[in-house]
Design a binder for these strands. Structure first.
Length: 306
DNA sequence: TACCAGGATATGG
DNA sequence: CCATATCATGGT
């Protein structure tokens, strides 16, 4: 994909064309309502810090309507490797290469879900840039309402990550495992983490920092193998492992059937008298294969906002 | 006030 | 093996 160097500033800008159908508006709407921390939204532009191979940068994102492309701008000059890095990261994060046409075609058989999908045409997953970030954010989000969970994530980032300045504003970078490994449990308790959650987050980070756990190895495993590999770790249950497969890895056919949010959404969309059981959700979800992740994602989206 | 949040674990039966 | 309490806070 072409990247253009601006002559006026020292930064540069690249254009990334997504697989259609793609709705930047829908995708960002969900992101902004759900992720109060990692992204900063201002005047139609979105800011997010990302780690390239050697250094963190602030990336400014906006939709370029005439070219139907995502425009990414950084205020620093990138070398070839960083440029390729950034493009790869963004294409993956914003699911730019995921073709939803087959999903939309197959979902026509499910009228109620088809309605939900129709209202959100082009909505794509936004993945976390790293499996580590995804795992930590998911653990923090366990059991908590999303607003509070976002607050805790924000506090962790500002405590442990570097700070970058962009247009007079300070943005924190999601910390590395090494940075979190250096914290004490009490540091996170002071941020209103409960003791156990402070242990989950720090112990996991230490394990990774010490080289005893390599999350990137998970990429080559099947879904169920990934779950099996993660379950023995303290603080990671099935739900958390599945969230990693969804929001860290973008696996297409996951169904977190026990998830309380999904069950509430299914109840509403299918107008059931009672909250369906995990088993019932699993049975209904058979019909959504091999797009169960996206079906889940669209159902989750019915919960936020409205 | 009570109860639930896009859970996981420790403990007791 | 199953049931229940616990967590730390915000929203309803």
């Amino acid at each position: 994909m072409a990247s253009v160097r601006s002559s006026e500033e020292s930064g540069e800008r690249m254009l990334l064309r997504p697989q259609q159908p793609y709705s930047y508006e829908e995708t960002i709407r969900r992101l902004v309502s759900f992720e109060k921390t990692a992204y900063r939204s201002e005047g139609g532009k979105l800011y997010r810090t990302l780690r390239l191979s050697k250094r963190p940068v602030v990336v400014e994102l906006e939709w370029e309507e005439e070219k139907s492309a995502l425009a990414a701008t950084v205020d620093t000059e990138l070398d070839d490797r960083e440029r390729m890095d950034l493009e790869r990261i963004l294409r993956r994060m914003f699911s730019l290469d995921v073709n939803l046409a087959p999903f939309y075609e197959s979902i026509k058989m499910e009228p109620r879900l088809a309605q939900v999908v129709e209202e959100r045409k082009g909505l794509h997953f936004v993945l976390d840039p790293t499996l580590y970030e995804c795992l930590i954010k998911t653990i923090i989000g366990q059991q908590l309402n999303m607003a509070f969970a976002a607050k805790l994530v924000d506090r962790l980032i500002h405590l442990a990550g570097e700070r970058l300045e962009r247009a007079g504003e300070v943005l924190a970078v999601f910390p590395t495992p090494e940075q979190v490994a250096r914290l004490r449990y009490e540091d996170l308790q002071a941020l209103q983490f409960n003791r156990r959650k402070a242990e989950y987050v720090i112990d996991l980070s230490r394990r990774i920092a010490e080289g005893k756990l390599n999350l990137d190895e998970l990429h080559r495993l099947e879904d169920q193998e990934v779950v099996g590999r993660l379950l023995p770790l303290r603080g990671i249950g099935r739900w958390t492992a599945e969230c990693l497969l969804l929001f860290g890895m973008g696996r297409p056919n996951l169904l977190p059937a026990a998830d309380i949010g999904l069950r509430n959404a299914v109840r509403r969309v299918y107008e059931l008298d009672a909250q369906p059981t995990e088993k019932e959700v699993r049975q209904m979800g058979e019909a959504w294969s091999p797009w169960r992740s996206y079906a889940t994602f669209y159902l989750w989206d019915t919960l936020s906002g409205q």
